[in-house]
Design a binder for these strands. Structure first.
Lengths: 191, 191
DNA sequence: CTTTATATATATACAAAGTATATATTAAAC
DNA sequence: GTTTAATATATACTTTGTATATATATAAAG
């Protein structure tokens, strides 16, 4: 998959590994996590397979050590076009270490779960602001890139309102339990 | 992560690998992909580390070969509790081979992208029906499991309306382009 | 009553994704 | 001139995910 992300980005302009990582973070940051440990081995493999070509640039006027500038080859463009045209099989996955825990919070301390939910609300409120600001910057991007940015905002908004709703429900549940503890006859009546 | 998913499930009841896979698919199906190739090596490691114990059951009255029934140990419960209590660091990732392509559809045939979007709409309309049906079944589950099921429905609904909106935008874009081809003066005037 | 299909169950080899860390160059700050 | 920060590449390692091989017991087909 990362292979195709790299080939896709090289359609826009020639790039070196360091720059590719920045672009992937910008464009697919909320879809795929990315690391140099994935970039460089992939670039090497793509080069060995003849899907990209490389020029070493020793003096670039800018900061830092020499760069390896990669371009997509005709073979690379064909391979990418083939991938783009076929139908994606696998469904989406919402991978989140917070949600993985959430399922099991019933086994732990409920008030601790409210703390973690508050942290998440703070995080995604901050993220949402950033995303909305970026939306305006993308006016000159293509329609697909803009729509993906919209999706990011929609996802963020949906998740935030779900977090807030969940917090409310959990707090109600906690206070209901407390009440039952102090007035046991209520529980007996309800059960 | 799968390690903790397994430990978490074993809190409910003792299980063998085959059954664990079913439960993970049910409970985290839209969060994590799961395979026997992940289950069995993880069970082996958890057993070697003393976090779970095992009993071989040769005759169970039911279909199939002997089972290895696993239980969580005290050590396992402690390890799980520690994990559950700490704050999740990494943000959510929406991993989707369709969305990965979507970003680049500008490089391909736009009407092909509409076809793929239609396939996605069909898929997620079917999924949404199934999810809404399952919501009712979960009334006796704990509050956290119910809230996660709600999130699944919300995500599905949000994604579907985004898909439909995207399709509309793309079709408008296509017809605008067609018009410009047949009446070139419009483009000149607009540009 | 034997073959075949199906659901159950485990295991392992392999590929792709993700983490951690080492190394080196240059511009700017102190 | 020495430290700091940004730039840049590389590799070892772990976790996640795919593919496939193997085997048992029951139900169905012939």
């Amino acid at each position: 998959m990362i292979k195709y992300a790299i080939l896709g980005l090289l359609h826009y302009t020639d790039m070196h590994g360091y720059r590719i990582k920045e672009h992937i973070e910008q464009n697919f940051g909320n879809m795929w996590s990315i690391n140099y440990g994935q970039i460089y081995p992939n670039l090497k493999k793509l080069y060995d397979d003849g899907l990209i070509s490389m020029t070493e640039i020793t003096q670039n006027g800018e900061k830092g050590p020499p760069r390896k500038l990669y371009s997509i080859t005709e073979k690379g463009k064909n391979e990418f076009a083939g991938w783009l045209d076929n139908s994606p099989e696998k469904p989406m996955l919402l991978r989140d270490p917070f949600l993985m825990r959430f399922v099991f919070y019933g086994f732990g301390d409920m008030s601790r779960s409210v703390e973690v939910i508050d942290d998440q609300i703070k995080r995604y409120e901050k993220d949402l602001k950033r995303r909305k600001k970026n939306l305006k910057k993308r006016d000159n991007s293509g329609i697909y890139v803009q729509l993906i940015a919209d999706l990011g905002v929609n996802l963020n908004e949906m998740f935030l309102s779900w977090l807030k709703h969940s917090k409310k429900e959990i707090l109600e549940n906690i206070s209901k339990n407390e009440q039952e503890k102090t007035n046991p006859e209520i529980r007996r009546a309800a059960g």
